[in-house]
Design a protein around this nucleic acid. Structure first.
Length: 805
RNA sequence: UGGGGCAUCGUCUAAUGGCAGGACAACGGUCUUUGGAACCGUCGGUCGUGGUUCGAGUCCACGUGCCCCAGCCA
């Protein structure tokens, strides 16, 4: 379901190591707004991964801010999550844990790890310092445990007004990570909570609630988005001090369970996804609703799940979209084409085809008698859907599956019809395949007509066509859809399009803002992104739909042929007053082509200020200038035979240089240097190095003798660094030796070539990049022992020799 | 500015140091009683500069660019 990614890699390793008995994730929305496509993706990651590992994902409402949260949002989010198809058993709420959380806070106070601070919010901000200045302790930081305990109890008891005190973790006011400068754990909020009422007037902060509730919920992998990376330090700090207590409590409550599961939860972050032509921030969505730009949270143009659902998008399409989008550690803005494709792909197989005319133009078939009516039986499904059906059956709108011959509906054909206004052109552009004066066109399922004449109104608009229904033998290039004028049902069609007219409304707005700032009148506040709302995001037209739809279930999704996918608006459509929402148009390659042929200059096109291309200064090797001391070291190293690039690094890093000079007592400094810098550099810097300088030198002696090759040396070094074993000992234990004997290598080469005849052919056909593939194959078979130079010689000879034969 | 994160076709996403692959989009074609779908093909990418290596998207260094952090929001 979820394609492999950096998180599943971590889970695989954790499971392999037996750290957890199973995977438990959680999806933690705050009930302060409606769920949108961003939530859909995040929920897909959490529910999808848990599902793939046979684990559980809990839905937990992160309801720690009574001022913004409402039951209404809880209900809507639950509905949305169920609609998406997720299952989570009992719903969890941070607010259910308030009592436990309070006890944990007390426990932190008792251990001197948290204190009650009593400065004003402004003062606290000032004392926190800034990104480049450390914070200073509040005068209350050293209160006694006793005093803190009493104050905290009185906070809970409601003795203080909002803002009078907070509980803070005592971590590190000088930390370069701003999040660690004594984060707030609890604050006073005298407000009615939608679940706990007025039981509490102190509420835990996000950081405190998230970590503790994860632990209480038995979460193993706590996945969140990238902006919380810095908060992970708090998460870890809290777990360090609270996990044991929680685990013991778990065990006491469920002694038979949890025998093996002992590890605390860990937080991992993934990149957010936004979408082109829309906005996905609750604040901005709220503005769209409040400003009347849309008709509500469930307006079909909104990226909310409620909106998408009302539009007619299916949960399967949303999930397919989420799957396509994938997971990575980069924030991304996804091409809206991906969503539209997922929707079309889903609906193509799901939606029976019928006909509807959204902008009617009357057609009179003059060679048919007045009152002529016949009934055609037209197939619901095109040939390809029928062919692809696995059981040979196809669906009726009511869900029954029948043989293809039976999957038809009755369509009345009469003397007067409606066709789409755009399907007739007085002056057709080149390549136009539909009706023109004197031209012919095929009416889908009903035969070919010829246009003999037309009537116009006072304004010169064509209002009626006079046509002749032609017999067998007539020909036409195009096919158009139609409905019977007398028998079709009137309907309203709501044609939805992208909400914004530019792909990145937020970025665009920001750009404008900056321009205006330069111009003088100051930042334009918020109307900016709103000014990009697509004025044509909703077009309401009235037309006709064939009468068969009247008998179908109300939630039937149709393809109105040549037009798009539609369904009835679940709120506004009634049998006597049909309203259809367009879910998505059909792909229209013709429309695009004609647009290209008649290029309009209507692109808003911000006259992007040309960024002057700066020529790189090649003489500048480093932004950080060397000190005299470093300069001296650099010269000395170079004089000793260390390469320029390595010397540059070593001169600046005493730790590496110290390691190198120790190693140099056992070997040649020149060749050691690159290994110290390139292969052991980070380990030495972090003081994690497990290979002694003398051991490295000994390994490199083997390399210089030619008894091992670089590949072996690197592999062994990595293994030594991992396990702490002497690298030379590993070489001996595994009996690794460079194979420089062509006789020994040849059979392996032959085997590899024989096993990959197609690759050999491709190589000979010119795909020389495959040399790497062959080398890699032989290396794998020989555990990296083949002498690479010799091997490549051998390979190119073999590959060429056979060529001549 | 201190800390942190990130960088692969236009977009999203893959590649134990060994073939830069897939999807969407675009373009061309086949087919078609939907200018749909399907099928075939084409175009197109490792942020830059050095270094290590037989071999670098991957390792090292230095740059560049974007994002996050100074709420008693989450």
């Amino acid at each position: 379901m979820v394609s492999p990614n950096f998180i599943t890699e971590i889970i695989d390793a954790d499971l392999e190591a037996g750290r957890y008995a199973g995977v438990v994730t959680r999806f933690p929305p705050e009930p302060n707004g409606y769920a949108h496509l961003g939530h859909a993706i995040a929920s897909y990651i959490n529910f999808g991964i848990a599902h793939d590992y046979g684990g559980r994902c809990r839905l937990r409402f992160d309801d720690t801010n009574p001022e913004t949260e409402k039951q209404e949002y809880v209900d809507s989010i639950i509905e949305d999550m169920r609609w998406l198809g997720w299952q989570w058993g009992e719903t969890s709420y941070a607010s259910n844990y308030f009592e436990e959380l309070y006890r944990m806070a007390v426990s932190l106070i008792e251990r001197g790890l948290a204190y009650v601070d009593s400065v004003s919010p402004e003062e606290m901000a000032r004392l926190r310092g800034s990104v480049d200045k450390p914070g200073t302790p509040s005068p209350y930081r050293e209160r006694s445990v006793q005093e803190n305990l009493e104050l905290f109890a009185r906070m809970r008891a409601g003795e203080f007004p909002n803002g009078a005190h907070v509980l803070r973790a005592k971590i590190d006011l000088a930390s370069p990570n701003m999040k660690l400068r004594d984060p707030v754990l609890y604050r006073i909020v005298h407000a009615e909570h939608y679940r706990t009422g007025s039981r509490w007037c102190i509420y835990p902060s996000y950081d405190f609630a998230q970590a503790t509730a994860d632990a209480l919920d038995g979460v193993t992998h706590s996945l969140c988005s990238l902006e919380f990376v810095d908060n992970r330090a708090i998460y870890d700090w809290l777990m360090e001090h609270l996990w044991e207590g929680i685990r013991d409590q778990h065990r006491a409550e469920r002694p038979q369970q949890d025998q093996q599961r002992a590890e605390r939860p860990y937080q991992y972050e993934f990149g957010r996804r936004s979408l082109e032509y829309t906005v996905v921030s609750k604040r901005k969505l709220r503005k769209l609703v409040a400003g009347g730009y849309v008709r509500g949270w469930d307006d079909p143009r909104m990226p909310t799940l409620a909106g998408q659902r009302r539009r007619g998008v299916t949960p399967e399409a949303i999930r397919a979209f989420a799957s396509q989008v994938g997971i990575s550690r980069t924030n991304r803005t996804v091409d809206i084409g991906l969503l539209e494709h997922a929707i079309r792909d889903d609906l193509n197989r799901r939606a029976p085809r019928v006909m509807a005319v959204t902008r009617p133009l009357k057609v009179v078939l003059t060679n048919l008698p007045d009152g002529h009516e016949e009934t055609l039986h037209l197939a619901y499904w095109p040939h390809d859907v029928v062919q692809e059906s696995p059981d040979g059956l196809v669906a009726l709108p009511d869900g029954r599956r029948v043989r293809p011959e039976g999957a038809t509906r009755a369509v009345p054909f009469t003397r007067e019809l409606y066709i789409e206004h755009d399907d007739f052109a007085l002056q057709p552009p080149p390549g136009f395949k539909r009706l023109t004066p004197g031209g012919t066109v095929r009416l889908r399922g009903a035969g070919i007509i010829r246009c003999d004449g037309y009537q116009t109104d006072d304004a010169g608009e064509v209002v009626e066509l006079h046509c002749t229904l032609l017999g067998e033998g007539a020909s036409a290039k195009g096919v158009i859809h139609w409905v019977s004028a007398s028998r079709a049902l009137r309907a309203e069609f709501r044609l939805y399009d992208r909400l914004f007219s530019v792909p990145h409304p937020e970025a665009e707005a920001k750009e404008h803002e900056e321009e205006e700032e330069g111009a003088g009148p100051g930042p334009q506040e918020e109307r900016d992104f709103l000014s990009f709302v697509n004025p044509k995001s909703l077009e309401v037209v009235h037309g006709y739909v064939e009468p068969s739809v009247a008998a179908d279930p109300p939630d039937t999704r149709y393809q109105f042929e040549r037009s798009g996918y539609f369904w009835r608006d679940p709120l506004d459509s009634h049998p006597e007053a049909l309203v259809f929402n367009r879910i998505v148009t059909l792909k229209d390659t013709w429309g695009k082509e004609s647009e290209r042929q008649a290029p309009k200059a209507e692109r808003p096109k911000a006259p992007k200020a040309e960024h002057p291309h700066e020529a790189p200064d090649l003489t500048r090797t480093s932004a950080r200038p060397f000190t005299a001391e470093q300069q001296e070291r650099l010269e000395r190293l170079k004089a000793q035979g260390v390469g320029e690039a390595e010397a540059l690094v070593l001169a600046r890093e005493p730790r590496l240089e110290a390691y190198l000079s120790e190693a140099a007592r056992h070997g040649k400094i020149g060749s050691l240097a690159s290994w110290v810098v390139n292969d052991l550099g980070s380990a030495i810097r972090e003081e994690q190095v497990r290979v002694a300088p003398a051991q490295l030198a000994a390994l490199l002696r083997l390399l210089e003798e030619g008894s091992i090759n670089t590949r072996i040396a690197k592999d062994v070094l990595a293994e030594a660094q991992q396990g702490g074993e002497d690298p030379v000992a590993i070489v001996e234990r595994k009996g690794l030796r460079q194979l420089s004997d062509a006789g020994a290598l040849e059979p392996v080469v032959e085997r590899v070539l024989a096993a990959n005849p197609d690759k050999v052919a491709a190589y000979r056909a010119g795909k020389t990049g495959l040399m790497g593939f062959f080398v890699g194959q032989v290396m794998r078979e020989t555990q990296g022992q083949a002498n690479p130079q010799l091997l490549q010689e051998l390979l190119s000879r073999k590959l060429a020799v056979n060529d001549e034969s």
